[in-house]
Nucleic acid binder design. Structure first.
Lengths: 107, 107
DNA sequence: TGGCTATTTGGCAATATTGCCAAATAGCCA
DNA sequence: TGGCTATTTGGCAATATTGCCAAATAGCCA
């Protein structure tokens, strides 16, 4: 495998890694409805604000969200709306999992 | 957030986590061309066979691939072909990243 | 300026992931 | 059966991720 391909795979893996956490998925889902400030998430996700902030920074670092400071609040929005479709496929993996498990059970 | 939603987010996050590794992404890309045996990957990815085998088991556990033993080889195939489309979006995140970086540079 | 709110950053302990080596397992063939 | 090939599993050290607390930062308003 050449090093360009390696770099590309690594770049993709980093994006998936950034999405691969329940709180961060929640954030992305919420942002599909429109922009939110950090405080909005703090209530909904039961975690320390500093933890939420770090999750947001992971998503920002990965290029998935953008932030904008207005007054003393910071608003986040999705940079990449297609993330939504993306999940249709994840759902179909979940369905496959279900099939797999019921097949195992019925043996 | 109710516990059903939490479970669902966790299930999705687990699938993304399973995909979020360069070698595993490589495997998924290869499998889009058709089934492969473990030995095929061993050559292409420069890692110990036991490492490859563990990556495959992560993908299998997540419901992304299925395996079948034939003779003394084990063949893997994608359970969920849509994983492919999925990556179109990941690419667009990469493009956003590029924009972001060039914007920063031109400041 | 001082005090308040919102958010980020630093540091750290607990936990999870990765990748290797060695050993186990399973099928094939002589 | 014994030896071979292909693959998986166990174990472990190195590394990465997570989530908290405390402290820093930035904007607002009196």
């Amino acid at each position: 495998m050449d090093s360009a391909r390696k770099n590309h795979l690594e770049a993709r893996a980093n994006i998936l890694k950034a999405l691969a956490h329940p709180s961060r998925l929640y954030i992305v889902e919420e942002l599909q409805q429109g922009e939110r400030c950090v405080c909005d998430f703090a209530e909904q996700i039961g975690a320390d604000i500093s933890t939420i902030s770090k999750h947001l920074s992971v998503l920002k670092q990965a290029g998935i969200v953008a932030d904008e400071k207005r007054g003393n609040q910071v608003f986040y929005r999705l940079r990449v709306p297609c993330i939504l479709n993306f999940f249709g496929c994840v759902e179909s993996v979940l369905e496959e999992q279900a099939k797999q498990h019921s097949a195992l059970l019925s043996r």
